[in-house]
């Protein structure tokens, strides 16, 4: 098809599979690290608050490719033989945890203050108040921006090409070098990315509209 064989399209799909794998790893890792970051961001302790804010600002001020390089070269000086997937997954975890932490901090703060006060009136402990009153409400607010950020994660896995991780972008690059049909190959790659990201964007928007309607 269009001067590119079916096998070669299969090669793109293979790359797409690893893009999805890396995205999932980035999201899961980002959740595990991002949740404590969000909690630290709203904590009343000066040190935790400061520390997490510095962390977020650092990660958000450094381009993802550079984070990838730092992790890639950084892990190897500990004497581990790094595989590009591990380095890319760690970098994606760092990256998404900072953004998710910031997003979720906003969601927790978006729960009206009266809810905290009401919880206090019911003599709930701090932990109970957070788990039974605030968290369920914050979760609902958090769905649209989190799904929206998934799009960013999927797109940004493409930066792992700098450390030679075999993902969709990398496979497209190799195919282009082999066939030199850039329009066909990069359009196909773009379509695959679009097919992954667009439904997520739509979901995010629909969730958001539903949330607004419920609050209105």
């Amino acid at each position: 098809m269009l001067g590119v064989s079916l096998d070669q399209y299969g090669f793109l799909v293979q790359g797409a599979f690893w893009t999805v794998v890396l995205s999932l790893m980035g999201f899961v890792g980002g959740t595990i690290v991002g949740l404590p970051v969000a909690l630290a961001r709203i904590s009343r302790g000066w040190f935790l608050c400061r520390l997490s804010s510095v962390y977020v600002q650092f990660v958000q001020g450094i381009p993802l490719p550079v984070i990838m390089f730092v992790v890639y070269f950084g892990v190897s000086i500990y004497g581990f033989d790094v595989n590009a997937l591990v380095a890319a997954a760690i970098a994606m975890t760092l990256y998404s945890s900072a953004y998710l932490g910031e997003i979720w901090k906003g969601c927790i703060q978006a729960v009206p203050k009266t809810q905290w006060e009401a919880g206090e009136c019911l003599a709930l402990t701090n932990l109970q108040r957070f788990i039974y009153v605030i968290l369920p409400q914050a979760l609902r607010i958090a769905v649209p921006p989190t799904v929206g950020f998934l799009v960013q994660i999927v797109k940004n896995t493409s930066y792992s090409v700098v450390i030679g991780f075999f993902d969709l972008t990398y496979s497209a690059k190799i195919l282009n070098n082999a066939t030199f049909k850039p329009f066909v190959i990069f359009t196909a790659a773009a379509l695959i990315y679009f097919a992954i990201c667009f439904p997520l964007s739509r979901y995010a928007r629909r969730f958001e509209l539903r949330l607004h309607r419920r609050n209105a």
Binding site: V151, K155, N156, S158, Y159, V161, T169, A172, K173, N176, F180, P182, F183, F186, T187, A189, A190, Y193, F194, C197, F198, S201
Partner: peptide, 15 residues
């Protein structure tokens, strides 16, 4: 907004 920048760059540059 739903495709990565790097694919756009490659598309433009090589294309």
């Amino acid at each position: 907004r739903n495709t990565p920048l790097i694919i756009q760059v490659f598309w433009l540059f090589f294309g």
